[in-house]
Amino acid sequence: MRKTLKIIGILALIGIIAAFLVYRFVYNKPHPDYEKEVAEYTLSAKEFYDEFKNQTVAANKKYTGKMIQVKGELDKVIQTDSLTIGVFVFSTGMFGNEGIRCTLLPKYNQKAKNLSTPANVSIKGLCTGYNDTDVIMEHCSFN
């Protein structure tokens, strides 16, 4: 009898621990630490943009949703109400400049503003896709 109770107790404990682990690491798992994530692809900003512009479907498959590191000459840094964005310009279209727009992690905002553009940079971030004028990168950091 006592043995059965002990087994039930242990099973219950395992159950509680498993539930906690699932809750903590699956249901409530944290967002990646984008600054520390390793880039899956490292390439020149121009190459990256051209791939999206010329082969959108293939580039989407290859890069969208992944950490990418791009290198090149950053043309300007702009500030919106809430975001600081580094912009690579490669062409001009209906909506003005077209290129890569990199939204920076807040801790890099000041560094971006201090850049005297055009400036050679290496930026890593999460590629979220191409909207027919710009490639969007988010959670970006300089490295």
């Binding site: 919106t80 809430s82 975001l83 209906m94 909506f95 727009r101 939204t103 979220t128 909207n131 004028t133 710009d134 969007i136 988010e138």
Partner: peptide, 8 residues
């Protein structure tokens, strides 16, 4: 939230 919306 999405702050990358393109609009014209």
């Amino acid at each position: 939230h999405n702050r990358q919306v393109q609009a014209a």
